[in-house]
Design a binder for these strands. Structure first.
Lengths: 231, 231
DNA sequence: TACAGCGCAATGTGATCACATTGAGCAAGC
DNA sequence: GCTTGCTCAATGTGATCACATTGCGCTGTA
């Protein structure tokens, strides 16, 4: 309750958007970017006041976020940002791998030259951000890289599932990045993925994506180093 | 609007359960069991009246079900049971395969003798139900078989994701079963899975699960026969 | 000083009302 | 006869109020 309603910068409310959608979008983005530390309690009235809306849209947004497992509903009916545990983290990355390898494999035949070029551009942005130490951009652009690849195939099942898993890793990312600003392992698996795409090599692409996910921040977490930060 | 509120048998409301939870549970079960045909429009006031509760708990339950993709939110802000298309069906089964093969693989080392016995019992129930033509039991027990296997490992990520995908196939199942009551392909992949578990053979288990998913009702759908029923 | 009991503030839940939007039916005009 | 525009019912959205529960702090007593 000391800082239940910090700055919490809300996005601009686009035309025709309901307050519920606006609130949901703002909360979701805040959670994904790690604006709320794990374990943080969130209250309907607190958020409603901070966003200057009534309780109603906030209630519905919270329900939705709980359903997506971006937030946790406690037994006392209170809502908080999920805690991260080594087991959960490992599960999240196992799920990510299973889903994203499949999504990449399915998207591969539908990646055209324009999309491949876009992927290359994103990868360069990431590399530049790594060099300049801009961790926030690294995470955001890395997500964009993966999403851009999978979206080559218009998919209404796998992509939402993948986003759901990303969302669950969100609150943890902030803490992870602050502790280990640039945790690159020296090998660019995005580049390997791009080569595999250009060559149309499905097996190589699957392996590149799997490696990319596993080496990103995953291996650090497995060693238990990051968990201590978030707990 | 002709039959916006059919019988809709609600489960008993357990002690300490909020109305929201009760409504959500009832709706979710109804959807999974195919009580609502695909394309069916659902309204807040209609359901509230049918369940004899106010609009509030229904609103929140619908939001939640939309978040879980058990229901679809149209542009006009109305909610309906999702339509099934061949593409979506294929995506659902691809996602199921990716997630469940992984879940089975991870659960394998933790399956003890008691659980294996339980799985055998479920499989026998399924076989009996197939012989007697009880399709409803086949689907329910088949779900239970898979869930019992994956739950050997206490998992808070993969299992909910799998349930989410099952939920999305729900409305379609009723129509599928009515059209093709016992669509067995002659080979019991559950038995193959059980053998693989007993032998501790991970590769064989992965293959058995993948085949089981693919041959269940999946291959029928791919041929387009079932889609016509649901559309 | 430690602990039990009370009481109030905070919070979630549910109901109801007011309003905007959607959509369908109907009527008037071309 | 077809089309356009209007009207009204149906529906979703948002706000507000009342109530139950939770949880914490305060106080009084041993």
């Amino acid at each position: 309750m000391t800082d239940d309603a910090p700055k919490l910068t809300m996005p601009a409310r686009s035309a025709g958007e309901t307050i519920h959608q606006w609130v949901f979008r703002g909360l979701r983005r805040a959670i994904m970017s790690g604006a709320f530390p794990p374990g943080q309690a969130v209250t309907i009235r607190g958020l409603a006041e901070a966003m200057e809306v009534s309780a109603m849209p906030v209630r519905e947004a919270l329900r939705r976020l709980v359903a997506e497992r971006a937030l946790t509903l406690l037994d006392n009916r209170r809502v908080r940002v999920p805690q991260m545990t080594p087991e959960r983290f490992e599960e999240l990355y196992a799920a990510r791998t299973a889903l994203e390898v499949e999504a990449a494999s399915r998207a591969l035949p539908l990646v055209d030259a324009a999309r491949l070029e876009k992927l290359r551009a994103i990868d360069q942005t990431i590399n530049a951000a790594i060099l300049s130490g801009d961790s926030e951009t690294v995470v955001a652009q890395n997500f964009l890289f993966h999403l851009t690849l999978y979206s080559a195939r218009r998919d209404s099942v796998l992509v939402p599932l993948i986003e759901s898993v990303w969302l669950q890793t969100g609150p943890f990312m902030r803490a992870a990045l602050e502790a280990f600003p640039t945790a690159a392992d020296g090998y660019d698996y995005h580049l390997a993925a791009l080569d595999a795409i250009a060559a149309g090599d499905e097996a190589a692409l699957r392996q590149a994506i799997a490696h990319d996910i596993r080496t990103g921040i995953g291996h650090l977490a497995l060693s238990g180093k990051l968990i201590a930060v978030a707990a």
